[in-house]
């Protein structure tokens, strides 16, 4: 009795049907994680190779999308993040939670202050703001904002405590808002207000 090609084919077919439909999502998240498309393509390929090798460890019926993201996040952390890892100091504690609200609501348009700002921010600004987040924050923010994973799923995917996921998302949001606000001011979309 040998391994047999029928079994191999079955495995391949099942894998392709379950795993390949998530390529789109994996790729867009990989691009935001790695910040360039070449690395992102490599990461996605590695993810599929690894997932395929470990396909027998995947429990049928469980969440294939989260499983693939877990593999991908692992690859990113192990192989790509370390490449450019430099000590990052994140100092968001001086930003209070309603920083943006405070800035905008003093602009005189109390009824809907965010509308004006959001209307002027362009796609490139959002991408830039996300890319400038430190790796650890960017990963969690992208998994939540872009892919809509729950806190618990993110904890599982990125191998973090639930509390760490919450605090990184919280701080990541505040950093993002600060960056978007700064672009808006420096591009002259809105006028800065002293705090």
């Amino acid at each position: 009795m040998t391994g047999g090609t029928t079994t191999d084919r079955k495995k391949r077919t099942a894998f392709e049907a379950e795993a390949l439909p998530h390529m789109d999502a994996l790729m867009r998240t990989a691009v935001r994680m790695a910040k360039n498309e070449n690395d992102a393509e490599d990461i996605v390929q590695e993810t599929y190779v690894k997932a395929y090798r470990f396909w027998d460890k995947f429990e049928t019926g469980s969440n294939c999308r989260a499983w693939l993201f877990r593999i991908m996040t692992n690859i990113f952390i192990n192989e790509y993040r370390s490449k450019s890892r430099s000590p990052v100091t994140v100092d968001v504690d001086d930003l209070d939670d309603s920083f943006l609200y405070g800035q905008l609501s003093s602009s005189g348009r109390e009824d809907n202050p965010e509308k004006e700002l959001l209307a002027k921010i362009i796609d490139g600004d959002v991408r830039k703001a996300i890319d400038e987040l430190p790796d650890d924050f960017r990963m969690v923010v992208v998994l939540s904002f872009l892919e809509g994973f729950s806190y618990e799923e993110i904890a599982e995917i990125a191998d973090l405590q639930l509390g760490t996921v919450k605090s990184r998302l919280h701080r990541g949001r505040r950093l993002l808002q600060k960056k978007l606000y700064d672009y808006a001011v420096s591009n002259g979309y809105i006028k800065d207000r002293p705090k």
Binding site: R32, E37, I130, F145
Partner: peptide, 17 residues
């Protein structure tokens, strides 16, 4: 609305590849 805005911008951002 910032949350929705960022999600929409990111989701729109299709890789060129």
């Amino acid at each position: 609305s910032i949350q929705e805005f960022i999600h929409a911008k990111l989701a729109d951002d299709k890789p060129a590849a």
